[in-house]
Every structure is written in structure tokens, then in C-alpha cells.
Amino acid sequence: MSGAPLLAAFRQSLGEAWAGGAGALLPLGFLGGTAVLVPLGIGTDAATLKAVGPGIIWVALALASLVTLERIFQADTEDGTLDLWLQAGAPVSALAAAKTLAHWLSAGLPLALFSPVLALMFQAQASPALLVNAGLYALGSLAFFFWGGVGAALSATVRRGGLLISMIALPLYVPTAVFGALAMSGGPGSTGAPLFLAASTLCACAVAPYAMSAALRLAAD
């Protein structure tokens, strides 16, 4: 097996995700819009915002993954790309992982890198810890994208699959959200939590490609 179909799929997805004129700005705009609604919705009290800030960024990342992933496999199913892939003989699990990774690179990672700015807007103290948190957001959002990819692959042939993806993927987001919030809480248990966060992300990266592969074979039938 050669790596050519894998590379092609990766570049195609990256192009898709980057297209639409705005590149990574579009997901950033989404994150900004979500984050701006929060102080308007819950009030502008500085202590409250400081307390909920890290959690709001996790929620925004989860939403961003669901919104981005809605159509990643649907278009390939409709226009026949998926059938070509299956014929190309490349492992479908690796193809699905490559596509998911491409979408994470263009939507998940920029949001994570941008998170210190948002954290400051949520009244966090400016400190190197914000950069560490950005790394944790990047790590955790990778799991969001992989589990969300399972939902997207399962609902690839379903019209209005977006709601279904959320229904399927949100329970799978729990460990990431819990460990992520724990790691940033600064309370007891927060020192080991980044390792658990990494472990749950690795679990997602190990399991999700096979589930996506099984679901895509189903979609191609």
C-alpha cells in the first residue's frame, strides 16, 4: 500500500476546511461569537466570568467540532469520493483519521491557540499558565474531533445529520470535558488530570478510526 491516497485525502480535507475564503478565521469567528454571547447572557460580573471562562472555552471547542464535522463525510458519500477511496485500497481507518486530523488542524488547533486571548477577556490573570491551558485545549479538542468524527461517519447518509452527530458524540465528550476542567481547576486532583486528559485523547485516537472505518463502509453500501 502506498501513502498516496492518504496524503490526497488529507490535502483534500485541508483544502475543504480552508476554503470558503476565510481559512482559520471562520472557526475563530465562531469561537469569538460563542464567547461574546456568554457575558451578555450570564452577566458581566468579573468573578463569575473568571470562574466560568475555562469551561466556556471547552464548550465552544466542543460546539466548533460538531459544527465543522457535520459534513466531512457526507459530501464524500454523495459525490462518490468515498467509493473511490474504498477502491484505492488504502485503509479506511487511516483515511478517516487523516481527514479528521485535517479538520482539527484548521478548526480545533487555531481555536486552542487563540484561547489565551479569550481567557483574558474572561478576566483571567495574564500568566504563562494560559499557554499551558492552550496546550490542554489543543490536546482535548483532538479527542472532540475524533469522537465527533465517529458521529459524523455514522450519520453520513442521514439528512440533517447535524443534530444526530451531537446526540451521538456528546456523551463521548464527557471524559475530556471532566479531565480538562479538572486540570484547570487548580483544586485537588488537578496535577494528575493533564495525564488523564492525554490518556483519554489517546484512547479516542486509537478507537475512533476503526469505528469511523466501519461506519464509512456502511455508508458506501
Binding site: P171, L172, V174, P175, L182, F196, S200, C203, V207
Partner: peptide
């Protein structure tokens, strides 16, 4: 089913 133990374990931390 793979996730149930993970979910259980993560929420048990709290």
C-alpha cells in the same frame, strides 16, 4: 461500551 468505563472513571475523580 468502550466509553462507559472511561466516563465512569472520569466522573469518579470528582
Amino acid at each position: 461500551a468502550i466509553n462507559v468505563p472511561l466516563i465512569k472513571f472520569s466522573v469518579d475523580m470528582v
